[in-house]
Amino acid sequence: MTASGKAVFAKLSSPYYPALTALFVGVMLISNIAATKAVVLFDWLQFDLGPLHVNGLVTDGAFFLFPLSYVIGDVISEVYGFRAMRRTIMSGFVVIVLASLCFWVAIDLPAASFYEGQAGFESVLGTVPRIVLAGLAGYVVGETLNSYVLVKMKERAGESHLWARLIGSTVVGEFFDTLVFCSIAATAIGIRTWSDFINYLVIGFVWKTLVEVLVMPITYAVVRHLKRAEPTYRSGLAGVSQVTPKVP
């Protein structure tokens, strides 16, 4: 165990970091496409709470996948540090922008006379640029804050209290991610009223945060495995333990 303020991070010269980055970028790309579909869960759930009129839980088609990006982000930040996560965020940014440009070009290309799917193609991928903008803005803000908070907490606590920094960073990151994303994407998926917007915002934030808490044992297991598998992390722990005086 390291002392307070003695944060250890692995170097990027391993096969694990590129694999995690690829998985993160893939999740983000799929989520941006799936999020173009507006979804209402539990439409039987109807009640009024002040100005909020709930007619089911309003979300989007990526609600079950997107939280995984924050789990991966937590793992990268905990094991490799803020700078590594910033590189991962930039990789995702470039790939999603490229995908958006490709969709825009594909929509604008003249359709063959026998192709009957142009309208459906446009209706799904035509909203992606707006969703991409929302996703990029949300995830750049959210993931950056998530990683920053987690790393700063680790620098204060060392290896202890992983659960606290996972939850603390998730609450901060997910809130601002959801707020930014929903503010931009709501009208693109058909949300028109303040009631539906608040529903969309609250459900999104609560759901994403809850998922991360529920899968925390898996996050713990992955982090523990990587810390043991990464030689530079083990050597960093050994180096810190040698220079840190024992507390009687």
Rank of each mutant, 00 (worst) to 15 (best):
G138R: 08
I107K: 07
I131G: 08
W104M: 10
P110A: 09
A112I: 03
T127Q: 13
V105C: 02
W104I: 03
Y139T: 13
F114D: 15
E122I: 03
L133Y: 01
I107H: 11
Y115Q: 06
W104N: 14
P129Q: 02
L145K: 07
L133N: 04
V105P: 07
E116H: 06
A111I: 11
L136Q: 15
G117P: 00
L125E: 04
P129M: 00
V141K: 06
A119Q: 09
G117W: 00
F103V: 04
V128N: 08
Q118N: 03
G120I: 01
F114K: 08
G126R: 01
E116G: 02
T127V: 07
L136C: 15
G117N: 08
F121V: 01
Y115M: 14
I107A: 05
S113K: 12
D108G: 06
F114W: 14
V124F: 06
E122F: 02
G126C: 01
G117V: 02
D108Q: 11
F121I: 00
S113Y: 05
P129S: 02
L136G: 11
P110C: 10
G142H: 01
N146F: 06
V124C: 05
N146C: 12
S123K: 10
G126D: 13
S113A: 03
F114A: 08
Y139L: 07
A119G: 04
G142N: 14
A137Q: 10
A112W: 05
A106K: 12
V132N: 15
I107M: 10
A112R: 14
G117S: 04
I107T: 07
V124H: 10
A119P: 02
A112L: 12
E143V: 09
L136I: 15
V141C: 14
F121R: 06
A137G: 15
A134C: 03
G135M: 05
V128I: 03
G138A: 12
A111P: 10
L125Y: 12
N146T: 03
G126I: 01
T144A: 07
T144S: 14
E143H: 09
Q118G: 02
G135K: 10
N146R: 10
F114T: 15
Y139S: 08
E116L: 00
V124N: 13
I131D: 00
Y139V: 02
Q118K: 13
Q118P: 06
R130W: 15
T127L: 03
Q118R: 08
G120P: 03
V132K: 07
L109R: 14
E122Q: 08
F121P: 09
V105Y: 07
S123R: 14
A134I: 02
G135F: 10
L133C: 05
F103H: 14
E116I: 00
L136W: 14
Y115H: 08
Y139D: 11
D108F: 12
L109Y: 09
G138W: 12
F121N: 01
S123Y: 00
E143W: 05
F121H: 05
L125W: 09
F114E: 11
L109A: 11
S113D: 03
I131M: 08
T127Y: 05
L125K: 04
G120S: 06
L145Y: 06
W104A: 00
N146P: 11
A134S: 05
G126N: 01
A106H: 07
S123M: 13
F103S: 08
G126H: 04
L133F: 06
G117C: 07
R130H: 13
